[in-house]
Design a protein around this nucleic acid. Sequence first.
DNA 1: ACGAACATACCAACTGGTCAGTATTTAAGG
DNA 2: CCTTAAATACTGACCAGTTGGTATGTTCGT
Lengths: 206, 206
Amino acid sequence: MLLWYNAFRKQKDCGAVRVKEKITEQSIRLFEKKGFSETSIQDIVDSLGVTKGTFYYYFSSKEELLMDIHYKYIKNLVENQEKILHNDKNNCKAKLSEIVHMLIGNIDIQGQSAKIFFREMKNLKPEHLEKIIPLRDQFRINIEELIKKGIEKGEFKNHLNAPIIALGILGVTNWSYQWFKTGGSMSAKEVSDMFVDMILNGIAGH
Amino acid sequence: MLLWYNAFRKQKDCGAVRVKEKITEQSIRLFEKKGFSETSIQDIVDSLGVTKGTFYYYFSSKEELLMDIHYKYIKNLVENQEKILHNDKNNCKAKLSEIVHMLIGNIDIQGQSAKIFFREMKNLKPEHLEKIIPLRDQFRINIEELIKKGIEKGEFKNHLNAPIIALGILGVTNWSYQWFKTGGSMSAKEVSDMFVDMILNGIAGH
DNA sequence: ACGAACATACCAACTGGTCAGTATTTAAGG
DNA sequence: CCTTAAATACTGACCAGTTGGTATGTTCGT
């Protein structure tokens, strides 16, 4: 009886290292693989060896957990982006390059969240969307402004349509979350360098 | 009584213009807006004024309907692509340009299916995925080969990594399905031209 | 003894899918 | 041209399983 008791305590102590974070991390894995609606709360707690009571102790609803995932992802992304943008040792070209490298380089640790972000956003409640969408838009507008500034400075061609170019660049990077696998045949640097080269110099021969 | 009878027949006749297609079209609309798992068969039939019996008369399962949508989309896309590739009046640059224009131009009628294709593919059964994935891969490989041929012919730079460039181009075009709205402030031609210009010539100033 | 961190049991609503039957169209036979 | 039988195109009631969420209890550290 005492033996069982100690074993139980040990299990509890291990799990006590931020149970909420463990639930979030595991949910990210499951949501990415199976989808938000296709993953039940039962699936989540079963895979962690806990019960639904635990889940609802930390989250008020399934949708709130999804909001948590969305908010952490986009907040972190915008922060990383603005760190790059505010470093005025770099010109616009270099900033753009750094952003692309940052996005591709982060696939390893942010890729699952990113896929969830774009695929499952529609499951957020309107009041939560109101917090997320401005951040998503800010990320895009920051790139747009970078393009415009680059045009002004003569770093980029002056006939460019900045909003379209921004969305084109976002397409290149965001789509990589769909196919890039860390540890595969191509390295993140290799991919990023090629993308930056294509965006800046194009693929047409001289 | 006779009046009601005729009205009823008329209604049936109108609906008889391919009920199966009406179900498919409506499902595409609902799946795109709410998601596959989030849309119940009840939702679909209610919005059409029929019952679940009708649905299961035309489809053996919900997943089969999803397979139908996937197959029609990717089959049509590969066909359109290969029509362009087999027209040997165009060089590689022109072919690439035509493919980009085709993809963006088709958003109007194929956009919803495209979003479903990439977002809901995970809900297909393994045996159905076996039919879809090769077609999806073929589309990508066709672009890859076009790049390689363009390099050989000196139309494209020879240091390019064709697989990465192909995925970059696919990113630009596929991502447009997420944001481009027909009838918005930018026309499909405007966007396509800008994308082709970026891909071929880059954005960096000379 | 008390609050934090769980577990257990339960529920109403909804899900994809089935099935036995009904209406309607079509085609053949008289 | 009319009857009739079979095939086609549905309806509506039903089911077992699952869902997100809740309410109540129990264990644990302090």
